[in-house]
Each structure stands twice: as structure tokens, then as C-alpha cells.
Design a protein around this nucleic acid. Sequence first.
DNA 1: TGTACATCAGTGAACGCGCGTTCACTGATGTAC
DNA 2: TGTACATCAGTGAACGCGCGTTCACTGATGTAC
Lengths: 200, 200
Amino acid sequence: MGLATMPYLPEHKSETRQRILKSARHLFNRKGFAEVTIDEVMADAGLTRGGFYNHFDNKEQLYAEAIRQFLRDSPEAWQCAYVDPSARGGQLAKLIVDAYLSKEHFDDRDGSCPMVGLPSDTARAGTTAKAAYREVLEMMAQAFEAGLPTGPSARQQALSLVALCVGGMVLSRAIDDQALADNLRAAARHYALMMSGWEG
Amino acid sequence: MGLATMPYLPEHKSETRQRILKSARHLFNRKGFAEVTIDEVMADAGLTRGGFYNHFDNKEQLYAEAIRQFLRDSPEAWQCAYVDPSARGGQLAKLIVDAYLSKEHFDDRDGSCPMVGLPSDTARAGTTAKAAYREVLEMMAQAFEAGLPTGPSARQQALSLVALCVGGMVLSRAIDDQALADNLRAAARHYALMMSGWEG
DNA sequence: TGTACATCAGTGAACGCGCGTTCACTGATGTAC
DNA sequence: TGTACATCAGTGAACGCGCGTTCACTGATGTAC
């Protein structure tokens, strides 16, 4: 008994798990919690329905972990921000604002930041999902804070910048008017940079 | 034939319809599109399942009309803003910021602004729902714009204020940390007022 | 004023379908010898 | 090196349940006389 035999290498299962999580993150982002089926997630990961419960307890848990996975498996600018926020200071923060409010991010329904794709879903979810959401928020706030002059208001300013960026993108996505959506993002970007003294 | 007999007064049906819409707006706001059942909405309105289709074609249509109903049946500050945005200028706009980011609005899961409760739901919904969402957004933007010094940037500034207010509230709702949620709203409020020159 | 009637808002049982979850099974894989 | 074996990741049929929608029916109501 014990570890007498071990038919699969230890990393095999965890690789499959990551694959499921990536599919889940993309599908949840695009379609929301309720509209995604486990069948769909597993098929997207190249597997079948039944195996899901070898990896996760239930759909709720999958959701929370999918949000958190964004921290590991995110676009490059984010990776940088997370790994070493103080390395490039204000310049990096400006890059994040630009990237966040860009057309590319707007169009990327699958891979976008989960704060944009899942805000109201998460507001109604359990504490695990909300904790994961908070971690993503904290990551972004800390990246901004590192790019601002040190001081008592730096944290507050960073939180406002997050609200402005996320709010601008979320609203852009929820309306049917392309021009207004573009204006919203441009306006949010302009005031975000101005507010931080990074641009006149 | 024709209007030979008319068993119910004309307003009877439309009053029932309004009652259904109010229940729908509250329930969608609290629970999201997919998590609300038609049975639930009808029961909340004091009716039974089957009668729903006397009033609406399907659930999608109910959703869009429920968002739009907010424009008719909204809290007082909003009513004012909509009815006569220029009447009180900057003071009214400041009141809206305060009300929007208040604890009361945060706690009111049923009656809150649909931009807060339904952003990601609407991003995935059809054009009718998105159009309704845009109307609410426009209403708020116009109220802000009327309170700002006239000029080419007034519109842009108003859009940023909407993004900041909605973003701050949406993020507050999606996290599990009460203190951080309060900080987010306070920060958004502070910078919204500052940005507009309404406060140092 | 009172009564028969036509209408249609509202009822509630039923239908179909899809989804989350379970479970007995399969078969690919690393280990022991 | 080769082979039997134990394990467990993955399979896919099945179960239960709930929800959107339909439909034949009911009964409250305003009108005509």
C-alpha cells in the first residue's frame, strides 16, 4: 500500500487541473457563472464531464479558483506589476492604465481581467470568490500605489485609479453604443493620468 | 364586437405590469439574470406563473424593461436629476456623488441603481438590455455635465465621474472586506469631488 | 336598479429540456520483480 | 530488458431537479338591456 505504485507522474494531474482552470476562466469571463456548464468547461479542456469531480468539489469552487488563477496566468504587463511593482515606478503605472483601458482589453472577452468580466457575478457569489476578486484588486492597487509619490493619500489615490479604470471598462462593455464606449474609456484614461500628475 | 364589453378598466393591466416590473427589477438587481425565475418574480408581485406571458414575450424582454423602469421609478435625487438637471447646478451633482457612493446605496441590494447591480449581466445580454443600460448611464452623465463649467471637456469629465462612481460601488460590492469596501467608496467620492473642483 | 353575458386577466398542471452531480467502469501508466 | 500488476485519471450513461414556456380552463369585471 502507500506509494507502492504511482501510475501517473505527480505533475500530470496538476497540469490537467491548470488546463481546466484556464478554460473555466475564459468561459466564465465571457459568459458569466450561471451560463457556463461544467460539460462546456471540460470539453474546452479536451476532457469529458465525469472527470471534473476528480479535480474540484463543485462549480462554486471552480469559479473562485478560476478568478485566482488570473494572478498566475495573466498578460505580461500584469505579471510585471505583480512580480516587481516598484521596479519602474510611475512609468509602469501609466502603462497599466493604457493597457487596461485599451481597445484590445475591451475586445478580449475571454482573457480580460476578471474584475471587468465578473463584477456582478462575484458580488452574488460566496466569500471564496470574493476573496479571490479582492486579491486581484489589491494587486492592481499596489501596482498603482508604487507608481505614486509616497504619502498618506497614495493609497487612496490608487484605489480611485482602480475604480476609474475598472468602472470605465465595465460600463463600456455594458452598452450598445460603440462611440460612447470609446469615449468612456478615453475619458477615464485621460482623468486617470491627469489625476496622478502623469500627464497635463 | 370590437369594444362591445370591457371587463377590466384599461389601467388595471398596466398597473399589474408595473408591479411585475418592480418585482423583476428588485430581484434581478439582487440575484442577476439567470438566478431569478419567472415564478419568483410573479409570486413577488402576488401573481402566479402562467400569467406572465399575458404581459411579456419572454424573460429577456422582462429584463430590459426592468432596467428601463428604473428611470421612471427611481429614488428622489435621481428623479430630480432627470426631470430638471440644470435647476441646481453643481450642488445637485455633488449630492448625486454623495448619494451614489453612500452606505445606504451600498446596502440596498434590491433598489440600487441597475448600473451597479447588473453590469456584467448586461454586458452579456442582448441589445435591448444594453440600450436600457445606456439610457441610465446617459441620465447620470447629463446630470453631472449640467453641474460642471460649460466647456469642451465637460462631457468627458462627466463620463469619468460616472465611471468613478459606478466603478467604486461595483468593486465595493464584489469583495469580502468591509473596510476595504468602505475605503474604496470614500476614495472614489473624494477624487470625484476633487476632480470637479467641488472640493479642495 | 338588476341580471345575463362576453371578455380577458389570471390560474395551475403539464411538457421538454438542460444542467449539476453520481457512479460503476475502463484503460493508460509507473513500479516491482 | 520484459511482464504482471495495482492505481487512479478519465469516461459516459444515468439520475433528479428546476426552470422557461404552453395551454385549456376559471372567474372577476364592465357593459348592454
